[in-house]
Simulated assay, not measured.
Amino acid sequence: MEATVPGARPDMVTSVILHQVAAGMRPRYEQWLARIIPVAATFRGHRGVDVIRPPEGSQTYTVAIRFDDLACAQTWFQSRTRQLLIDEVEPLLAQAEQVNTVTGLEFWFDHPKGMGPPRPYKQFLLTLSVIYPLTLLVPLAVRRLIGGLPLLQPAWIERLIVAVIIVSLMTYVIMPRYTRWLAAWLRR
């Protein structure tokens, strides 16, 4: 596991794991995957796992596992539990797993090795298509919710609350799903 990404904050860690499954081993790999995901969830700081199954003609699984911070991710990656599970899956893989650890918002547009990143205009359009509606809807919802609370009335507090909600939704809810949904378009 790479210890850090230059200039990155050591929190909100996502590790992207690529598994090139050997021919004919997908059913056994899927069984192994169904076992390891709940095990990882028992580790401190675990925030979830996304599995991107191979497109037609490929055998490469992309597994994104998220943790609260770098220390939590390292605890999982260095654990005896994970090592035993990796030892078990290695015969099913055509090559050793590849792990890349990213922090914060970088994961939105992470790409498998050998493939270039999505074109900048596509990253721009995709991000804009999420942020613009959020900047319209979230402030309205916040004003309705805090309308009667005098301590939260200063404009800077309302804007801070709006920013926290938008960034949280982008990072943890919308972008991981949206980029997965539009992955084929992003890679074209």
Rank of each mutant, 00 (worst) to 15 (best):
P91S: 06
M25Y: 05
W76T: 04
V89Y: 06
L84F: 04
L85R: 13
A73I: 03
Q83T: 08
T101H: 08
A96Y: 10
G24R: 10
T62F: 05
I86H: 06
Y29F: 15
L105N: 11
E97F: 05
Q78R: 14
T14L: 03
T81L: 14
I65K: 01
V39I: 15
A71I: 07
L93W: 09
W76G: 00
T75F: 07
A96F: 11
V89S: 04
Q83A: 13
D11W: 00
V13P: 01
G104Q: 04
L18I: 12
R44V: 08
R26N: 08
V89H: 02
Q95F: 02
R35A: 13
V13C: 14
P27T: 05
V21F: 06
V39P: 04
V16P: 00
T81M: 12
W32S: 00
V102S: 12
A8R: 05
I52L: 15
Y61A: 03
A8M: 04
A23Q: 14
A8W: 00
L105W: 12
A40T: 13
D87F: 06
F43L: 02
T60A: 12
F43V: 05
M12P: 00
A94L: 07
T62W: 11
W32N: 00
C72M: 09
D11G: 02
A23W: 08
I52Y: 13
D11A: 06
F67W: 11
A34S: 14
R82Q: 12
Q74S: 10
R9F: 06
C72N: 13
T62P: 01
L85G: 12
E30W: 01
G57M: 10
L84T: 08
S15C: 12
I86M: 13
P27E: 09
P55L: 07
P91V: 10
G24L: 05
Q83L: 06
A22Y: 10
G45R: 04
R82D: 02
Y61P: 00
M12G: 10
F109W: 05
F109M: 01
D50L: 14
V51H: 03
E30A: 15
V21C: 02
V49E: 02
R26K: 14
P55S: 10
F109I: 04
W108K: 02
E56W: 04
F77P: 00
M25P: 01
D69E: 07
A94E: 10
D68W: 06
Q59E: 13
I65N: 03
E30R: 13
T60F: 02
F43S: 03
L105M: 14
P10I: 12
